[in-house]
Amino acid sequence: MSQQTIEQLKPQVKTAIVDLLYRLADDHLILGHRNSEWTGLGPILEADIAFSSMAQDKMGHALAFYRLLQQLGEPDPDTNAFLRSGDQYRCCSLVCLERGDWAQSVVRHFLFDEATRIRFEALEQSRYEPLAQVARKLRGELKYHTMHGQMNLDKLGDATEESHQRMQDALDRLFPHAMGVFEPTEWDETLAAEGIQPREAELCKTWRSQVADMCAESGLTMPDDVGPIYGGRAGKHPEDLKKLLDDMQKVYRLDPDSEW
């Protein structure tokens, strides 16, 4: 099977790839920012360091995707991160939500990183070679995030009655948002037909079955009769994102031409 380079892309395929890259980049940037909100506030030092490190990793991964966008003629990473309004973002609602209690942050991190692992495993085979290279590069780093997520799901899932209840509540609340990670877009078919990424529904199916097993092993029950919350991939976000962007973009917008 031949691989595609930037020069060979048909316009429609390029548009589909750009859309996919914005979804990936924006998810990582916004979750990175959310993770960083635990810096200095984590319940114990190791938890604080873990969320701060994962925040930094997610920012790095976002940057890798924004750089791929730049190679395709989109604005530079800083412009994309700091000068777009909420409706221009393509992130899912899961990453937008306010951090909530510790259980919600841990469950979100677990659900998102398992989804990312499954997506990256598929992207490693992508016929869009620059994206496949990034997926291969980030695999080792992501492994530490999934290890941490699974470890904490195990620990808190059945540590005490309260920890179990909080984790189950978080899972019930966040699961429809997590299914929204796999919101299909109008580019789904093009991306699948061109061998760039499998259909969202296919990725979602793999994720659901693996996550259900992991939840069960941790004494938690994955809700199976709820529908997904969609909208993020079309630019429709919960109010939480606006507040996050106001905060994240504030300094940059004071003087966008500054040299940092």
């Binding site: 873990a50 490190s53 930094q56 780093e141 530490y144 941490h148």
Partner: peptide
Amino acid sequence: LESIFGPTL
């Protein structure tokens, strides 16, 4: 092993 994350990435 104390923590899989440390002072640098």
